[in-house]
Computed example of a mutant assay.
Amino acid sequence: MIDTHVHFWNFSPVKDSWITDEMSVIRHDFTPKNLTRTFNDLQISGCVAVQASQTEQENEFLLTLADQSELIKGIVGWVDLKSPDLGSRLTYWNNFKKIKGWRHVLQAESAEFILDPAFIGGIKQLKNFGYSYDLLCYHNQLESIIKLVDQVPDQPFVLDHCGKPDVKSQDLKTWTQNIKLLAENPNVLCKISGLLAEADWKNWKEIELFNCFDVVFEHFGVDRVMYGSDWPVVLVSRPYQDWFNLVSKYAERFSSSETKLIFTDNARRFYKL
């Protein structure tokens, strides 16, 4: 099994200012060593390490960790997609085969940024190198994400954290409509990940998560959904095992071959692991 969404960092209050005091459980360092026992217990063979800092030094940091740990099967890094020097940067990073794709924290950006022709032009260069792109956004940004994807229809995309629906309020109508539209592009996949952070951390109910899972599987299908944990962020709500068990319980409705797609095969195909 593959966990398609894991973060690692050496905690810095300045660099990681998004980790607030109420998230104290993750205000320290996280490395592959912190995951080894959990992965062994759950028979997870590896992960995709996703950028948590928006510098090219982040790529170097994750590559160093990958050299030290066999748990990291692939990396989603960061590069300035609006840079006029993007082509040469992609050519450079293409020497490091563990880097499978790229991500920018679009949830912190405006619609104008997401639809900036320079940004979209950068994404259009990724296919030349065989790179994927992770879409990180809130549910109220999905309209802009759909417009972005429509302009690069042949680019492999994956939506992180199901587009961050409002799990807590269960106001899912507009999110559901936009998930349906986004899923109409066959080159877009979706990660079942990160939803506990969008719920009431300590008092969520299983049905609230399963309502979101229902929408994702209805529109993306088992062949375009991937399991991810969003570890260590998931720890603000529950231990890693609780999230894994929750997704596994939902997956009991699928056949063994369909479950293998969700936990293994789709990740290997999409990220070329």
Rank of each mutant, 00 (worst) to 15 (best):
T4K: 02
V6E: 08
K97R: 10
T264N: 12
R238K: 15
V188S: 00
D223R: 02
R238M: 09
K168L: 14
Q155K: 03
D41H: 05
W78V: 10
P32V: 05
Y240Q: 08
D16Q: 14
A267W: 05
P165F: 00
W18M: 10
A251Y: 04
E198R: 11
E252H: 10
K205G: 03
I123L: 15
G87E: 15
Q177D: 13
A251H: 08
G77A: 09
N185Q: 03
Y92H: 14
K249L: 15
C162Y: 00
W93C: 10
S88Y: 09
L182N: 05
W201T: 06
K15G: 02
H139Q: 14
Q54S: 14
A251V: 10
R253P: 06
W204T: 07
N59Q: 12
R269K: 14
V79R: 04
S144L: 05
V234L: 12
Q241D: 11
S53R: 13
Q43W: 00
M226R: 04
K98T: 12
P32T: 09
D150C: 06
P165S: 06
L106K: 00
V79W: 12
K205C: 03
C212Q: 02
Q241E: 14
K127L: 12
H7R: 09
V225R: 01
Y92V: 00
Q155C: 06
I44M: 08
V6G: 04
K173L: 13
T176K: 07
R269Y: 04
D160V: 03
A49C: 09
W231L: 09
K98D: 00
V48G: 01
P156M: 06
D150Q: 14
P32L: 05
F96Y: 15
V215M: 00
S12E: 15
I2E: 07
S237Q: 05
G74E: 02
N40V: 01
I2H: 08
P117D: 12
E56M: 13
A111V: 11
F220V: 01
L62F: 09
K127V: 12
V247S: 06
F113L: 05
S83I: 14
T64M: 03
V236M: 12
N95A: 12
S12V: 04
M23R: 12
N34D: 15
V25T: 13
F11D: 06
G221R: 07
I75S: 13
Q151R: 14
D171T: 11
L90N: 09
I123H: 00
S69P: 03
S110R: 04
N266D: 04
K82V: 11
L261W: 02
K82F: 01
H7M: 08
W9T: 08
L115Y: 11
S255D: 14
F129M: 07
V188T: 00
L172Q: 07
L148D: 01
E184P: 00
Q43P: 00
F157Q: 07
F157V: 04
